[in-house]
Design a protein around this nucleic acid. Sequence first.
DNA 1: TATTGTTATACTCTATAACTATA
DNA 2: TATAGTTATAGAGTATAACAATA
Lengths: 140, 140
Amino acid sequence: MADTEILRLSSDLRVTCGRIARRTRLESGQEIPQHLYSVLVRLESGPSTARQLADRERVSAPAMTRTVSALDVLGHVRREPDAEDGRRTIVRITPSGRRVLDRVRGNRDAWMVARMSQLSKRERELLAEALVVLQRIETA
Amino acid sequence: MADTEILRLSSDLRVTCGRIARRTRLESGQEIPQHLYSVLVRLESGPSTARQLADRERVSAPAMTRTVSALDVLGHVRREPDAEDGRRTIVRITPSGRRVLDRVRGNRDAWMVARMSQLSKRERELLAEALVVLQRIETA
DNA sequence: TATTGTTATACTCTATAACTATA
DNA sequence: TATAGTTATAGAGTATAACAATA
């Protein structure tokens, strides 16, 4: 495969991925703002300090203070003092927060499932094979 | 393919598309803000009125006034009065605007091309086949 | 001294409402 | 009257700087 073909494939693929991502986001009706949702996803796999969240989301510490406060007011996270280091605050997702993730994911999946159902069995199998490669690209 | 398998495939695929889209955006170093870039892409295929741009980008008319003004100041678009309807303003991309698109696309492609180059010939062919199906999903 | 988290302040982008000009 | 575009104003979200508490 020539370099120009690889470029063309790369470009078309990233543009199409972008459009699909944008479309599923729009279709989800966004129950909560994207930056709150993104933090909830981070907390799903375990509690975190505000500092860690700010670094991983690539926002400033004051911005994360506001975001965590908003989630706290909504009841989607709890803040606990860190017993080992008094400067730190542990942020933990609540059952309410997990329910938000379930609902948002359900909405985002709905549009995609509707489209996938219209494909042939062969096409879905093709996408399943391609998915493995795409996941490898993304985690590289 | 069972419904649960379709759901699983749909969900994994949209999440992976989202991560790839986010990654290429972050890697591009954003020469101009996303909302300006998005309008330039719209104008690439032909001139448009401010009203049309606002509708297509799903923002308010005043927001589009600001966006177009910002692009105008940067020299990336020109505003011309509509000869047929004095209320309208025609917005047109300039050569400078087209050069911005070229540079941003080049940056966004770079990360993706680097990853694609590490795949096998067989894997790239698989992605090329899958791309056609993904494009059909997106335009549905 | 360095680090965590917060408050103070300013900037950007957004929306709604009100205004001007044209149809 | 209705529509295109702008200006006025207010509300989110962000960042940098300055601060308090703890290591």
